[in-house]
Design a protein around this nucleic acid. Sequence first.
DNA 1: GGTAGTGTATCGTACATGGTACACAATTGT
DNA 2: ACAATTGTGTACCATGTACGATACACTACC
Lengths: 117, 117
Amino acid sequence: MSHFGTTVRRKREALRADDRRFSLRQVAHRIGVEPAYLSKIERGAAAPPSEATTVRLARELDEDPDVFLALAGKVSSDLQEIIRKRPRLFAQLIRELKEAPDEAVFRVVRVVRDGDW
Amino acid sequence: MSHFGTTVRRKREALRADDRRFSLRQVAHRIGVEPAYLSKIERGAAAPPSEATTVRLARELDEDPDVFLALAGKVSSDLQEIIRKRPRLFAQLIRELKEAPDEAVFRVVRVVRDGDW
DNA sequence: GGTAGTGTATCGTACATGGTACACAATTGT
DNA sequence: ACAATTGTGTACCATGTACGATACACTACC
């Protein structure tokens, strides 16, 4: 269903094309898991790994951790913590932005970031 | 650490003060769990229950589900789903609002809701 | 043609999650 | 007084999570 595994495999093999340090075994070793486990993950034979492992994998493959976590069906725990501190406020905001087009959301981001308004 | 249990107990006993249908047993029955389990939850002898059970409990005690979920250390799965659909965008927005005062966040909510800007 | 590296199959496992079932003692209602 | 109701202690359990260990077959290379 969630093509987390195939996304990882595609990205890894793309990197491997001009750097053979991106073999499954070597990547597995660098992110600190057994090759057999990473193999199962890439084939979808195992569910996506824990948040920590997913983030290490994303960094290793030069991908956005939040995107990889999303593919893994998760939301970064630091975001969750922010939400949990003011649940009503953030719940309302996020639900309000559910249907908003990307551009509108990004405009909100810019406004908040620049602070001038 | 998280006083989820004691919050539940306080709220339930407050309601029980003028409605004896809010005994632990009866509430447990209405939300579909065993009394012994709810007892453990209220005393902190068991971790907060699943999302579904937490929401039923919140509704039964006339509390905001998002707040109860937050106390339980969780974030509503429908919010997570919204974030997962556009991870970069929402991750950036939420982190940007991390330190913003309530008033600023609420102003954003209003602006988005009213749409006129 | 050995050996070094590649991916994979199979099995096991330690711990967390989300509860149920039952018996019991204390309290309450009538 | 006694029946019902209350909260709780103890034991148990099925499923899911997040991996590790080992052995194997294939290819690549020199």
